[in-house]
Design a binder for these strands. Structure first.
Lengths: 228, 228
DNA sequence: TTCATTAGTGAGTATTGCTCATCAATTTAG
DNA sequence: CTAAATTGATGAGCAATACTCACTAATGAA
């Protein structure tokens, strides 16, 4: 069965989903076509399993790398750069995820879906921490920030994924990080240092925002369906 | 032939590309299956023609509306809002474009491709003009800005396109415009011009409003299924 | 009237994901 | 140690569906 998945991964990568024939996968795996359907309910499920296995491997050392980094900017850049790099290194798999998997109704019940949520949640955390620290402003919805980061990354890589060009993960990550960072950063220390006026209201606001966050989390935690 | 395209548009919208059967399109159009292939080389080309026709109609009054608007921020917001609104109003067609058309090799030879380029070129122009006017900084690649805008929009609308939630074009457009604008704006005119400091009370109010908004959202998120 | 062109037909084909009755091998039971 | 049962694999065949093509009907020109 591992043999089938290995071969399937390769064929899917090379030919894309609809051009990859179950007959060919079976032949290359040295089994007959019916054998595939003993282990997988259908071609779609085969792809899902293949992608899931790949994705878990990709995300394995992810947290470890992130934990080392200090500072909002460095951590944000790492997230962006990482995503860009995965796409750059594995265009075949990413094409399958972007074009096929994500369009299917089964997608939500996939661990790819869950892992992606987990993956992007890191981004929200970093932004949230920066907000708490007074580094970022608090008046933009976190989701929008996440959408612009990940959407921007994918949009940027389309041409490459269509096999019609290339891109530099480093250059792109620098520019995107800069744009997001400046878009979210509080007023630059114009003249004097940091908090020119801590203002009692500031403390109050921070605590209000913390309350809101807790409410969000508790409200979100109970519903099992989609949110945030 | 117009009849076939009309029907095809409807069936594609309703059922998606692969679930839409040529037999069904033919039947509903009151012709036999072979007739479709007299006018269109294949099912793919039929979809392409359908989308092209739709897209041209969508972009018809686009420039006219844009020309009226003054100011970088208003124009940027319009572009973003417009894209969000099209997706919100025509999820079926947009799904077809995002999931099918754009993944095909023929895509580049499509007028949809050209029209999209033309469409996003407006964004680059606006940003470029703001750079020339000294309103925006010049050290970020224009393409990145464009990618984050359009990628962000699409990423934001996924859940809705999967039929699992909703979004507000207005709210999203506000937030995205703000993020991009602040990310690109040059240092605020520190001394002269503009409210040098928006007055602490104003800042406090804005942030309180943001807190309120988040509370509303989290309160709303718990009921029903997914949204916002 | 006749020929040519165009529009349309529908029976048929090729491809391909998938099923299922059957066989072989391996494990468990008596 | 034989018999039964479970598991693994087979491959012939089915069903769905995009697409083809030889042929007919209608329309227009000479």
């Amino acid at each position: 069965m591992q043999e089938i998945m290995q071969v399937a991964a390769q064929v899917f990568r090379d030919k894309g989903y609809s051009e990859a024939l179950t007959a060919q996968i079976a032949a290359r795996a040295g089994v007959v076509e019916g054998t595939i359907y003993r282990y997988f309910p259908g071609k779609r499920d085969l792809l899902i399993r293949v992608v899931e296995q790949w994705y878990e491997r990709i995300l394995a050392d992810y947290d470890q790398q992130l934990r080392v980094l200090q500072g909002t900017r460095a951590r944000l850049r790492f997230l962006i750069w990482r995503h860009l790099t995965v796409i750059h290194n594995e265009p075949g798999m990413c094409r399958l995820i972007f074009n096929q998997l994500r369009a299917w109704p089964e997608y939500r019940r996939t661990t790819v879906f869950d892992l992606t949520r987990e993956y992007t949640r890191r981004t929200l955390e970093i932004v949230q921490q920066a907000i708490d620290a007074g580094e970022f402003r608090a008046d933009l919805p976190l989701r929008i920030v996440r959408d612009m980061i990940y959407g921007g990354v994918e949009h940027h890589t389309w041409v490459y994924l269509r096999g019609e060009g290339d891109f530099s993960p480093d250059t792109a990550a620098d520019a995107m990080t800069e744009l997001v960072y400046r878009g979210l950063a509080c007023e630059q220390p114009a003249s004097s240092q940091r908090p020119p006026r801590p203002a009692p209201a500031e403390v109050t606001l921070r605590r209000l925002e913390a309350v809101a966050r807790r409410l969000e989390q508790s409200a979100g935690a109970k519903g099992g369906s989609a949110r945030v």
